[in-house]
Design a binder for these strands. Structure first.
Lengths: 242, 242
DNA sequence: CGATTAATTGAACCTGGTCAATCGGAGTGG
DNA sequence: CCACTCCGATTGACCAGGTTCAATTAATCG
């Protein structure tokens, strides 16, 4: 069944803070099951009050927010290890939706246990807040990208983030990783039009900085890409896993 | 001295969740002082690891992030009741700076007490996470604005948010509130140029939707403004106060 | 009174958006 | 197996929302 946290495929990856046996057992008590969904499935719905919280075990997805005028903003991209549903858990309402882009498998927790969880293990509660702070940090950087960078810089930045994230998760082989998103997803994430995103990707490909086609992203020189994006490469950091 | 939490000017305002006497006494134990700064002062510095955390008692400021290319993104605007320094507290490094725009007074907590604080009162720890979730929620909306809305919609949205925030804090009198920010601050918050921001504000003024000049914002019809911004007016919500 | 900062306005220009057409691959029904 | 459709990627032509440059005004300050 793959329900036992000790065999969780994630907690030994070096992208995550090492968990003690006690922590694993503690999490086990709150895990109520696993959820598998197909690509395209909406896992959490904007405005809804999900009774469940999830940690992504495998697969990828997007968080996005729909505006009243029909436009869509992709808030960020979901990777294994990401925790989803905090807004519903705390505020009682999701500010965005989460949609699967590949087949996804998730670890499921009950929202009704959340308070008990939070109270009975301050250290794990602390980790939840840690994750929230990471999220806030990253959203700030995204906002700076969308607000201040040119299309070329923004797309480079996004490719860099994808790649760095992929490396931490061991998804990169031969300077290559699988990215199941569409160009429309990226365009909506960066506040660019689809057409211009496409042309900008083509330019990055021409300049041998990053090539993304057929769901495969290849980057040979991360430093050069970071230069174009006018960013620093971020040092690999461990984050807690729920 | 104004050090006693029982006389805190904020906790009875209806923008905040009511605090019990026990909670006030608990916070009192961790409060190590107050900080007063003049306009223009940098309170927290991007990249630094502040030894202190703050709750704003009075005054306003901005959070902003500087990019490598010299551009600046204003992440959001700081109002009374806002909690600052969580990123330093959790991640050991601020992702943005905080700069005062008026004279500001803050309640000061020591970062070194943070873990003790978190562990000894789960309910207050929960509230910290709540605040982080609110922040994430709001950043998502900001991102959607910068990424998807036109200049006119974005500026309208910002004026609406200012006003809604001001109403909750009792800063609005006669459809009017004081806003100590510059047009450059707003431009950098919305990813617009200063010139275009100025012209857009003029348009809002001409159309009698919102008038902001000489530090005073006046809005007579919030619904009309929300229409132009293509947003819903948000219902007044209480948030926890640290 | 010169210096600095914020707001304002006009004009030229350009990055990125919109429109539209094409192409290839995957799925579907006959 | 073919015709048809749908979706994502791609490309060219045209256009506009917003940027940049530049100059002016007004207020504040030492």
């Amino acid at each position: 069944m793959g329900i036992d946290c000790r065999y969780c495929p994630l907690h030994k990856k070096d992208a995550f803070v090492t968990m003690t046996r006690e922590e694993l057992e503690f999490m086990q008590k709150f895990k109520v099951g696993e959820l598998s969904v197909d690509p395209g499935t909406t896992i959490l719905m904007q405005g809804s009050n999900s009774p469940q919280l999830y940690t992504v075990l495998s697969g990828m997805g997007i968080r996005h927010k729909s505006l009243d005028n029909g436009e869509r903003q992709v808030i960020n991209f979901v990777f294994p290890g990401d925790f989803m549903g905090l807004q519903a858990g705390m505020l009682g309402e999701m500010g965005h939706s989460v949609e699967a882009r590949t087949h996804m498998r998730m670890c499921v927790f009950n929202r009704s246990d959340f308070w008990t969880f939070f109270r009975s293990n301050p250290s794990r509660a602390f980790d939840i807040t840690w994750l929230a702070a990471i999220e806030e940090h990253f959203l700030g950087e995204t906002l700076a990208t969308v607000g201040q960078r040119t299309a070329l810089q923004a797309v480079s930045w996004a490719m860099l983030k994808f790649f760095e994230r992929g490396m931490g998760l061991g998804l990169v082989t031969n300077n290559t990783m699988t990215l199941p998103f569409t160009q429309r997803d990226l365009a909506d994430a960066l506040g660019l039009s689809l057409v211009h995103t496409n042309k900008t990707l083509a330019k990055l490909r021409d300049q041998q900085l990053a090539s993304w086609s057929d769901q495969v992203l290849q980057v040979n020189d991360l430093d050069k890409l970071a230069d174009v994006a006018e960013t620093e490469r971020s040092k690999p950091a461990k984050r807690p896993l729920m």
